[in-house]
Design a protein around this nucleic acid. Structure first.
Lengths: 144, 144
DNA sequence: GAATAAGTAACATTATCGGTTACATAAATC
DNA sequence: GATTTATGTAACCGATAATGTTACTTATTC
């Protein structure tokens, strides 16, 4: 969870694809739902395609579709596809190794962050696209 | 966990104070261990003092000391003191509410992020300054 | 009153992110 | 096969945020 909206938008994208039930959806349509530029959507979809969560079809009648069933896609899958390796602020953190504290704190912090990250990912792994789709659908049951 | 190093540096600061065992430590000394400017340290300490984790003393012989024993300070306490309310990228996320997906996804994501955050905080709550101090100390057992 | 140190405002620098334009590539339809 | 539609990316701009730095005020000790 850095400060960006990549993960949030990506979940929105996949939720939208699930909602459209297998139709080939162009980036412009998704952008309309997210309220952003189609290129922003395509950038994220590029990562999601590489992670094999989504399939892309070029050309007229082309667009994006889910690569597996919503039940088989967890939010952790999405998170890992679009979030760069979490650095948790250790990017610019270079303590003074001549100090006994500075020398050891970095590896200690790595351990802490690893556990914190694992705790978060456990929760993300519990949620599937199918469960989100369920939350989404009841409100508009007749949608094609 | 945003993208900044506030939390990492803050843990370093408090670990340093624990290591110095009750001595009044000036910001310049801490800055030497962290390898940064004393003002950066004081800025974070300002938040830590407000959260009652640290006491400050002005003037000659002044400096900072822990406000409670390392055993009673968890990393979650530190996290909450220095990290602004986590927004997880929902800051700039304003989907199209006219779309059935855009209308509901925001509250769904809030729920997801809340759970993910809770999973992370549970892990941070498990770690105390005392346990970090223990990891730090064996290497230089004779330090005053 | 001299020295030390916290507290804080102000500013510069840099990095990152989101949005945008532009263009190449590919596929379907006429 | 030309037109249309859509993905795939590169390139750039502007806003925002984080970090470092200078400078100055306030408070305390000696």
């Amino acid at each position: 969870m850095t400060g960006n909206s990549r993960f949030a938008v990506s979940v929105h994208i996949l939720a939208y694809l699930a909602f459209r039930q297998g139709a080939a959806v162009p980036s412009a349509e998704i952008a309309g739902s997210v309220s952003t530029n189609p290129v922003v959507i395509r950038r994220l979809l590029s990562a999601l395609v590489k992670a094999r969560l989504v399939s892309a079809q070029k050309g007229a009648t082309g667009g994006f579709t889910l690569a597996s069933t919503p039940k088989n896609i967890s939010l952790l899958d999405i998170y890992r596809a679009v979030e760069p390796t979490p650095n948790h602020g250790l990017r610019t953190f270079t303590p003074n190794h001549k100090c006994p504290v500075g020398a050891k704190i970095e590896s200690i912090l790595h351990g802490v962050f690893f556990k914190a990250q694992a705790g978060m990912e456990t929760e993300l792994a519990r949620v599937t696209l199918a469960s989100i789709d369920q939350e989404l659908r009841p409100v508009c049951p007749g949608k094609k």
